[in-house]
Design a protein around this nucleic acid. Sequence first.
RNA 1: CGGGGUAUAGCGCAGUCCGGUUAGCGCACCUGCUUUGGGAGCAGGGGGUCGUAAGUUCGAAUCUUACUACCCCGACCA
Length: 491
Amino acid sequence: MADFLTKKEDNYAQWYNDLVIKADLAENSAVRGCMVIKPYGYAIWEKAQAELDKLFKATGHVNAYFPLFIPKSFFAKEADHVEGFAKECAVVTHYRLKNSEDGKGIEVDPDAKLEEELIVRPTSETIIWNTYKNWIQSYRDLPLLINQWANVVRWEMRTRLFLRTAEFLWQEGHTAHATREEAEEETKTIIDLYAYFAEKFMGIPVLKGFKSDAEKFAGAIDTYAIEALMQDGKALQAGTSHFLGQNFAKAFDVQFTDKSGKLEHVWSTSWGVSTRLMGALVMAHGDNNGLVLPPNLAPIQVVIVPIYKGNSQLDSISQTALKIKSELEAKGLSVKYDDRDTHKPGFKFAEYELKGVPLRLAIGPRDIENGTIELARRDTLSKETIAIDKVTDYAVKLMKEIQENIYNKSLQFRNDNSYTVDSWEEFKESINNRGGFIYAHWDGSAETEERIKNETKATIRVIPVGNNNEEGKCVYSGKPSKQRVVFAKAY
RNA sequence: CGGGGUAUAGCGCAGUCCGGUUAGCGCACCUGCUUUGGGAGCAGGGGGUCGUAAGUUCGAAUCUUACUACCCCGACCA
């Protein structure tokens, strides 16, 4: 057993921290609040990136890159936007260092002060809209569908690996459209795409919906989000898609001539997912033995471990193992054959469980003799021995099965931890004792939302979209409500 | 920013109260032999400006002062 990992039940937060570090995903760096993403963690991110990128391109988007630095004056142009981000911006004020007077080091050269200070981007709307202004003149230039993969900086007070760091990696899409309807459509297309990605690739079911005014993006008209439920009963926002109306177009004076010759401001959207998804992956599926990775995002889908005494045994086992490896690879699986002689099989078993490899194969002398091979599933921790000539097809089938099982398990968990609540007493008790998603009526006012937050720490995660027109009374104020919204404590 | 805490080998810690040979333990690391179907055993070995600076003292990891960094709890947030 992995008794060097804190148990999930004992201390969930500690379990998470341990796991991220011990599974080699990331570690804290010498820079406060900034993490180093290690090769194994980065490999998972790269797979996620590749899949998302395909989805973006399949929906007509292209990639580009905008600067890390944003002139301070750009930032001030959209009032809500500045207000939302002002408190967490890193600012570049100088462009040169010099040897200090006492000769003992270097210091900022006071003579090298920038004329205009630069903000390290916390998000890129302002620099992008300043640029789009020059790109858009006519309806013929629209829509403009651009994404960028980038790092951003938000100076957070308290940080946690992947979940909240001062610098993080993400993608941010920024689109411009001729009509409101088209921009709204784009916003929905993307949130659907995010939900599809979360469910199909990450194996995490998500709730889709609007954010309340208090929770939405600074500068947006509407924010859609996908919310996932972690195993400790807290919600995690996994992606957002914003309908920005004409806010940024007006702030940056981006106008186009429509077909009738009239000058109009463009309609826009922005949307993003970040390395925070890595945290979701850990917390949604991990167990006390370590990570559990969905096959669709696992850098190693199958690992083969030889069991042997002496070099001659290893040679004959390796022959078989390498043959299986290439057969599996021919079927499109990524396979690692771990023939390191410096570690014993037991060590390797534990290590690949810690790292969440979906399927482990073991071959020893007994198997060679019997024409068999041992399979161990990471998701169920079950083992079985099958005929060696059946292993390729079976492994391919298992990838699908494991992917589905992981998703279904998460879905089951979410269903078991979703509650419909109609009284304030029950609401408080539910939030405090069992966490999870709470479906309750809300009167729609910011005051009520704020009070609920102050009294319970629960926030409105999403206002579900569509077919939810059940009327009722606000769980807090008793005032009339048009539909239930989803409350939870959140990361 | 408020409140609390910590700083000794790559990591985790003991030693500090009550100053006194060569600063110690576990893990990790290196070498050798034996091992290999669930984190191997034995033997040997390497690694330290005790956070930084000043002070007290014959003598400081240990006492004093200042500084710095990090962690936890709050307020703020993807």
